Every structure is written in C-alpha cells, then in structure tokens.
Simulated assay, not measured.
Amino acid sequence: MTDSEALDLDFVQLGGTGIQTSELQFGTWRFGKETEEGNVEIDEDRAYELLDAYADAGGRYIDTADVYGRGKAEEWIGNWLADRQRERFTVASKIYWQIRDGDPNSRGTNRKNIRHRVDEILDRLDTDYIDVLYIHRWDDQTDAREMMKTLNGLVEAGKVHYLGASTLRPNAWKVAKANQIAKSEGWEPFTVLQPRYNLVDREIEGDYLEMARQENLAVCPWSPLGQGFLTGKYSRDEGLTGESRAVESSRFEESYLTEENFDLHDELDAVADEVDATPAQTALAWLSHRDGVTAPIVGARTIEQLDENLSAAAIDLSDEQVERLTEAKGGPYAGL
C-alpha cells in the first residue's frame, strides 16, 4: 500500500456552485511538458501513476488546460477516466493561448475560438462535459459581454457546468464587471477563481479576496509553493547553482531568492519543525487555513512528492502559527 492510499482527503464546498471539491486539487501542468533539451517532465505512464495515487488518496478534482503538453495532458486524463466512473471526478480545463502559428483567431476568448477549443477539449477528454471551464487569461480584445454570452451558451448546451477565471490578479474589477453583465442578462457568471497565491506571492490579498468572499466565489490557488521556493530546495548562500540554475530563470531568482523571502522561509522552517512537517507541507497548510481560500492546486513529478503534498491536508496549524507565517512577509501584506 502506498502512502497515498493511507490518506483520505476531505471535501469542501466549491463556492456557490453547490458541488463539493477535494480540499487539495491535482494540477497536471507538467504532463507531457517538454524541456529545452527535449525531455518530457512527466510521461504518459508516470501521469497514470500520479492520477492513481491522487485517486487512492480520495482526490476527485483534476485541473488541466488545453495547452498542457500540447493537448497530451487532456488525452491522458481522458484515457485514465475511461476505466473509471466519470461522474465521481470533477475535471477543469482552460482556454486562451494561441494554438496555431499565424492564426490570431486561435487565441483569446472570441466566440470562434472558444467554441472550437471546447469541442477539441471534449474530444481529448473523451467526455460529454467539462465541469469547470476557465478562461486562462483575460482577453482585452474581446468585449466582456460577447465573452460571457458565448460562455453561457456552452453552459446551456450542457458542454460546460461552471465557469472560472484564472490568473486575473489583481484585477478583481474585471471579474466583477463580467459577472455583473452575466447576472443582468440571466447568464452563467464566473463562480470559480484560480489566482496565484502563496506565502510569497500575496498580491490578491485585499480587494481580490474580499470580492471573492462577498460574491461567494471559490478560490483555488495555483503555485501554492512559489514555484518550488517554499519547499526548502534553495539555499540563501548558494542561490541557483548547478542543475537548478539550468532549470530556473533569472526572473525566478529576482522574484524569489531575496533576503526578505529567505527571512520568511526561516519562519516557515521554524513552524514546520513545531508541527513535525516539511516546509512544503506547512506552506500548503497555511494556505488552506487562509480565509477565502477553497482548495489549493498541487502538482508533483513523483509519487513521493505527491504524497508529501497531499499529506499537508492532515496538518493543523494554530492561530498563532498562521499569524506568524502571515506576518513574516511584512510590508502591505502583513496582517491581512
């Protein structure tokens, strides 16, 4: 029996949708992803193993996008689901990024692109419907009313159950505007949000989270471990060295490997020791304890990494520990 089989993830309410979601969602952005050297980060066999481990732990929410692995992620999820009860799983996908060179209409949220992309997603997933369809980015070239009308048509056709908006930080007003249009027309609004949020990246605190709370929108953060920084794999003294320098960008180094963030990590390490957990598990536990957060999205390259991340669901932080971690960032985010 694997460690995953010993876990038992709970369900939480997915905002105002009325459905339940796993307290930790599984992200598949590395499925089929090719490195610059031509290697695949997670191949098909490993993808099935990871999906098995997540399901064994009681996980039921699978997050993907039509550009992950250039469609391979959705194909593999569809193959995996073929041997299971589709209704037991919530599957979310996303649309936006350009998929055909030289064709500007294969990008964004225009009606032509949305309808075509959704039909292709359904074919790859080999399913009749998508539980949650996210717009992967905001398309300033498409009128919000046009977009919401098109998305509503997908819901009415039964191809999509719920609508989500991913990575709109910190533009809460764009979501609010789109939902106001949808509600005034009797259309389906956005009910699920997917921003970047972790102990380091705190830009959604304030108006964004408050808007989500007021409107009863689910908040399912991506990058809960700050692109790996919060796992403890980087050293204050060494920074990016060897293999990590070849993988990570200078932008990562400038954004994460700062004195302020390493000071935060010192506090994270201290709390992790107190609760007998890893820094990654403690960072995930902090996020799950944040008011307004529904369910973080976790990913992993190996079964061991997935087991570690999913085990964070069993960690209970005290109010004092949550506050210490919150205050460790300092600046305008402290105390929010």
Rank of each mutant, 00 (worst) to 15 (best):
S249R: 01
N179L: 10
P170H: 11
G32C: 09
G299Q: 02
V175L: 13
T2P: 13
S250P: 01
E23G: 01
P279R: 08
R245K: 15
E248P: 00
L163W: 05
A178H: 12
D56E: 15
A218R: 00
G59M: 11
A313S: 15
E44F: 07
E320H: 05
L125V: 05
L225G: 07
W76L: 13
I130W: 02
L9Q: 13
E323M: 04
G242K: 08
E254T: 12
E304G: 08
A65H: 02
P104E: 09
E74F: 02
G228P: 05
R236I: 03
V219K: 04
D140G: 03
Q20W: 00
E253P: 07
I297S: 05
T294H: 10
E267Q: 14
N152G: 11
E5I: 09
D266S: 11
E238Q: 12
S184K: 12
D10Y: 00
A53W: 01
E75K: 10
E188N: 11
E41F: 03
Y197C: 01
G226K: 10
A6S: 14
R88I: 03
Q321S: 08
E185K: 12
V132Q: 03
Q180H: 15
R117E: 10
K33N: 11
G69H: 04
R86D: 02
D10S: 13
K174L: 13
P279G: 01
W80T: 04
L257I: 11
R115T: 08
E243A: 10
E75N: 10
R301V: 14
G108Q: 02
R196V: 14
Q180L: 12
